[in-house]
Write a protein that binds this DNA or RNA. Structure first.
Length: 913
RNA sequence: GCCCGGAUGGUGGAAUGGUAGACACGCAGGACUUAAAAUCCUGUGACCAUUGCGGUUGUGCGGGUUCAAGUCCCGCUCCGGGUACCA
């Protein structure tokens, strides 16, 4: 311990009045010297490998508790990170004390765009930046005293790691989804239909390609000219800008790797039911998968052979279909458009394609469209209905064509109104308002709810729905459609193929070679990993290709027959590494297998997974998809990766702005009488709560907090702020509060005169066992804020009494230690223990100490609490009534009335007058 | 628009349908100190009363269920997050 780093308020003042002291004297101080304590125990844990996880299969109680690993950005750790990390750390430490074999690892999601952009700007290789950032993150995380097993640290950019990411890609490529058995299977087991076999090798190859979970094809993609990369749909924001950089994206056609995640849609949806996840997150995933049931119905084009297939969830409204709409991209448009309409239609298609690039999501926009001149025939009544083109119909969903039922669909209604198309009501609405009902039946208002069918029968076709309700109508018409062979019942999903390649350097290279003859082959597993070439200068290739296109030596290959080939220049998206990292922690150094099967069987699934809600859909859905494929292939033993999921809330911070809206740095603020002033100008400023950001000048740096208050205070404060899932503002004053608590605990237990031997005071004993019970329940339920408050209550009780027995102190230290592990170890050590507290058995609450003979019984009159009486526990109700009614204070309220008395045993008495 | 959250003192928050405001911050008063800091003690929802007891009111708004509602039900308002024409 050196004197110089002491910088907390407490010690700054201490040194003002103290003569210079030698370092070894500080350990004798009665004050809580967190800087020294934390350093000491971090070194102890490191030296003794305290948190090294053994693959000890003899302990049947395992617990795998995982954090969402971070992307190590150049900015270093944010105070948001330690929130989730502390929560999992408390659980990990608690479970160890409960005798569980705990797996609690940490690693780095280190591929990513910022390092690449930095490289393009400065010439520093991403590997260098990444290494530095990881070092910073590791140092910062270690200073928080988190009990990770650092032997298991992984890094997605490590060839020893991404070798297996590439390996999984090969598995995906070689897997097809067997609808019959509802699982993914080896591509070699794919049955080839006879007609395909007859058509020759090329047809066979194409057929197989069409079944693989990973495929290479032309895809219309979003391209960000600024980042010079392809973006996934979900990375493009509503206003048509790129999520990462804020610049506009454009549409392009490019050969891309795609993954057929919709094949797993049903299982991804169904298996959500059994997961212990927040209901909101499950709902978001359900919505994202977007399952709907309906029917695909064929409409003939009048006077042509062509057929327009539509998908509808409301086949029951076929009688109300008065026109059809094709998506502008639908190839049928060119075929069916009448010659005299061609110009107009083409102009519309051009305009809408342009619009989609510029402003495709302007919601306030009016619906647009154009008539093709063609008519379709409604199969239920053979009526001719016009076919339009409009961009409110999307090519990517369903069949890219709809039957429009303006009377019962808001969008169709809006469109029909605008273009004067027929609106035919076929469902008499379930409404009591007579005027509204009339409006709907007349086609002047849209009705999407239930009701009774009208105008829905055709004798010639032998179909009637009249009088039925919606549910029966759908069933009836679907049967009829199938019998008539004009359509089929169909399930549809919003979930689409996953665009799985990026035009970047800093990502996993695909183990793929494109040969001159047009064939594609994948590298053999034995040749992995395919490393990234060591480019001197990283800059995008021509035509938006990845920088890898510049790596000539790496790029071109020749096989043993002299055939020339070119490696895939795309790399995998950042999701790739994070899709399976939880599996690698199980056996991170295995070079012969992705992991040892026995280890996987022992450790999986992840018992508790904590991270931010921003990954609610994508990361968690992609991971589940990969996991299910691996499960089908027999590589993992569980069908789901994450048993229990919990989302921590965001930590915000106060920020200050002047009346003009200018932001004032938080350290320039002084407070007077609940008002805030700029201490330099004296101007009054407004306090707001906002996300931490450089522009608001309200970023809290964890390093500063650790320096000023200690890691234990940081941990404890983040847990004490409020519920883990809540969004909450950071307040430095609150950190001071928990520091005060830790210092009081230290002063109490570190002073021998406070510690007694022998019998404990019964009140303290009861308080202690209340604490044990509360803390245990709260940790199990992740209610850390109330667990901390329970510890404070206990300590307040003890401090009032002034003394504590040695045994009570030991129990309290145990409970404190998962929350404030450095102080826990220190106090444990001060009570004479020679070993770490990390594996001491967790205390058990005992009923006998919790019981009391009497209790303060609140008595309310007409539901309003009026006074309390001391009553024996379990007193017969008649006795309770007698005592309560005879109380002077009760008489005052009752007067002469005869009251009714409700007694909730050992809880409350309510007198009703 | 739709979906999901949320609204409790000056502040962060606590509360199996059963004493609203635990715990903490802040603030006020006191002790210690030459003084301050730190520490310790006391008080602290609002309003009325205050010599003592005490009383009224109170969990975004309006209704309801109940002996009893922050908690359950119905109808709103506002705030936050997600999402974007999915037929």
């Amino acid at each position: 311990m050196t004197a110089s780093p002491l910088s907390s308020d407490i010690f700054a003042n201490f040194f003002l009045i103290s003569p210079p002291i030698s370092p070894n004297l500080i350990t004798d101080m009665k004050d809580y010297n967190f800087t020294e304590i934390e350093k000491k125990w971090q070194e102890y844990w490191e030296k003794h490998e305290t948190f090294r996880t053994a693959d000890d299969f003899s302990n049947p109680n395992k617990f795998y508790v995982l954090d969402m690993y971070p992307y190590p950005s150049g900015a270093g750790l944010h105070v948001g990170h330690p929130e989730g990390y502390t929560a999992t750390d408390i659980v990990a430490r608690y479970k160890r004390m409960k005798g569980f074999n705990v797996l609690h690892p940490m690693g780095w999601d280190a591929f990513g765009l910022p390092a690449e952009q930095y490289a393009i700007q400065t010439g520093t290789h991403p590997a260098v930046t990444t290494r530095q950032n990881c070092d910073t993150f590791r140092r910062q995380i270690k200073e928080l005293g988190l009990s990770y097993d650092w032997e298991r640290e992984i890094n997605t950019t490590d060839p020893g790691y991404f070798k297996w990411t590439q390996w999984i890609f090969i598995k995906l490529y070689n897997t097809w989804y067997d609808q019959k058995t509802d699982r993914g299977r080896d591509i070699n087991e794919l049955p080839i239909p006879l007609d395909v076999l007859k058509a020759g090798d090329e047809a066979r190859r194409k057929y197989i390609e069409s079944k693989r979970l990973a495929y290479y094809d032309d895809a219309q993609i979003w391209y960000c000219p600024s980042c010079r990369i392809v973006c996934a749909n979900e990375e493009v924001l509503n206003d048509g800008t790129h999520e990462k950089c804020g610049n506009r994206v454009v549409r392009r056609n490019l050969k891309q790797w795609m993954l057929r995640i919709p094949q797993y849609a049903e299982r991804l949806l169904r298996d959500l039911d059994n997961l212990d996840w927040p209901e909101g997150i499950k709902e978001m995933q359900r919505n994202w998968i977007g399952r709907s049931t309906g029917a695909e119905v064929d409409f003939k084009v009048d006077g042509k052979k062509d057929i327009i297939s539509v998908y509808t969830t409301r086949p029951d409204t076929l009688f109300g279909a008065t026109y059809m709409v094709l998506a502008p991209e639908n190839p049928l448009v060119a075929i069916i458009t009448a010659p005299d309409k061609k110009k107009e239609v083409e102009a519309y298609i051009n305009a809408s394609s342009l619009k989609s690039e510029l402003d495709r999501t302007d919601l306030s926009k009016e619906k647009t469209g154009v008539f093709t001149g063609a008519y379709a025939v409604n199969p239920v009544n053979n009526k001719k209905i016009p076919v339009w083109v409009a961009d409110y119909v999307l090519m990517g969903y369903g069949t890219g064509a709809i039957m429009a039922v303006p009377a019962h669909d808001d969008r169709d209604f809006e469109f029909a109104k605008k273009f004067g198309l027929e609106i035919r009501c076929i469902l008499s609405p379930d409404v009591t308002d007579r005027e509204q009902k009339e409006r709907i039946i007349a086609g002047n208002e849209c009705w999407t709810g239930d009701g009774e069918y009208i105008n829905s029968s055709d004798n010639e076709q032998g179909i009637t729905l009249n009088g039925l309700s919606m549910e029966k109508g759908i069933a009836t018409i679907t049967n009829w459609i199938e019998q008539k062979n004009i359509g089929i019942h169909r399930v549809n999903y919003k979930l689409r193929d996953w665009l799985f390649s990026r035009q970047r350097y800093w990502g996993e290279p695909f183990p793929v070679i494109h040969w001159d003859d047009g064939r594609i082959t994948l590298m053999d597993e034995s040749e992995l990993p395919l490393r990234l070439p060591d480019l001197e200068v990283i800059e995008p290739g021509e035509n938006g290709e990845s920088p890898l296109a510049n790596a000539t030596e790496w790029l071109y290959v020749t096989d043993k027959d002299g055939r020339r080939g070119r490696r895939e220049t795309n790399t995998m998206p950042q999701w790739a590494g994070s899709c399976w990292y939880y599996l690698r922690f199980i056996d991170p150094k295995n070079d012969d297998a992705i992991f040892d099967k026995a280890k996987e069987k022992y450790w999986m699934p992840v018992d508790l997974y904590i991270g931010g809600a921003e990954h609610a859909v994508l990361h968690l859905l992609y991971s589940r998809f990969w996991h299910k494929v691996l499960f089908d292939l027999g590589i993992v033993s569980t069908s789901e990766p994450f048993l229990k999921l919990f989302n921590q809330g965001m930590i915000l911070a106060f920020a200050y702005e002047t009346p003009a809206g200018a932001k004032v740095s938080s350290d320039q603020i002084s407070e007077r009488d609940g008002k805030y002033f700029n201490s330099e100008t004296g101007e009054e400023v407004k306090q707001i709560v906002a996300k931490m950001s450089k522009s608001l000048k309200n970023v809290i740096n964890p390093d500063d907090v650790v320096k000023n208050y200690g890691a234990d205070s940081l941990r404890l404060y983040e847990m004490f702020m409020g519920p883990l899932e809540a969004t909450k503002p950071w307040d430095d004053k609150g950190v001071k509060g928990v520091l005060g608590f830790l210092a009081r605990a230290y002063r109490l237990i570190a002073s021998e005169e406070n510690i007694t031997r022998g019998e404990e005071d019964p009140e303290i004993l009861r308080s202690l066992h209340q604490l044990i019970r509360k803390a245990t329940d709260d940790i199990e339920n992740l209610h850390f804020n109330t667990a901390v408050s329970a510890m404070m209550i206990f300590l307040n009780t003890v401090i009032k009494k002034g003394k504590i027995t040695h045994d009570t102190a030991l129990t309290f230290i145990k409970i404190l230690s998962p929350f404030a592990p450095h102080l826990g170890e220190e106090l444990w050590h001060l009570t004479g223990k020679k070993y770490t507290i990390a594996f001491e058995p967790w205390p058990q609450a005992e009923e006998k100490y919790l019981r009391t003979d009497t209790f303060e019984c609140p008595v309310s009159v007409n539901g309003k609490m009026r006074f309390k009486v001391e009553l024996p526990i379990d007193l017969p109700q008649e006795e309770v009534k007698r005592i309560v009614l005879s109380d002077e204070r009760a008489k005052k309220w009752i007067g002469t009335a005869t009251p009714k008395v409700i007694i909730v045993p050992n809880r409350i008495v309510n007198i009703v007058i």
